[in-house]
């Protein structure tokens, strides 16, 4: 294999791993609050109500504002808030990230002197 093919196959392999992690393994993710959320939720109890989850008690998380983009089509890693769409949202996220980051780094790179 020449260097170009070798590089390309490594990059494609890396992309495939990221797609599988975001698209499939993400369904196995623990849905409990993460470390930061856990800390800001100390003192509160999360209660299910007709209007969704409510925080009862007194905790830092009550200061949290709703996200400006809470209504956006991919909010909370789901397609339009749909159940079991995490994997699709994850795949879109990987593609968006690789395009944005790859494009940015490609523009920023040192170019060989002509």
């Amino acid at each position: 294999m020449n260097t170009k093919t070798r590089n390309l196959s490594f990059l494609l392999g890396f992309l495939l791993v990221a797609l599988v992690l975001a698209g499939a393994v993400s369904y196995l993710a623990d849905s409990n609050p993460d470390g930061l959320d856990h800390a800001t939720l100390q003192g509160c109890e999360v209660v299910e109500t007709a209007e969704g989850e409510q925080l009862q008690g007194s905790c830092i998380a009550q200061n949290a504002k709703n996200h400006q983009f809470a209504g956006s089509p991919l909010a909370d890693y789901a397609i339009g808030g749909g159940e079991n769409t995490t994997g699709v949202a994850g795949v879109i996220g990987v593609v968006v990230t690789v395009v944005v980051a790859g494009g940015f780094f490609w523009m920023l790179r040192r170019r060989p002197k002509a």
Binding site: L11, A18, L21, A29, V98, G103, F105, R109
Partner: peptide
């Protein structure tokens, strides 16, 4: 960043995005 490392850097970002979804 050069022709070889720029695409790798883009994929590292995508890999971090994917892995951040995997709460353990």
């Amino acid at each position: 960043l050069d022709d070889r490392t720029a695409p790798l850097a883009g994929l590292v970002a995508a890999f971090v995005f994917a892995t951040q979804m995997l709460n353990f």
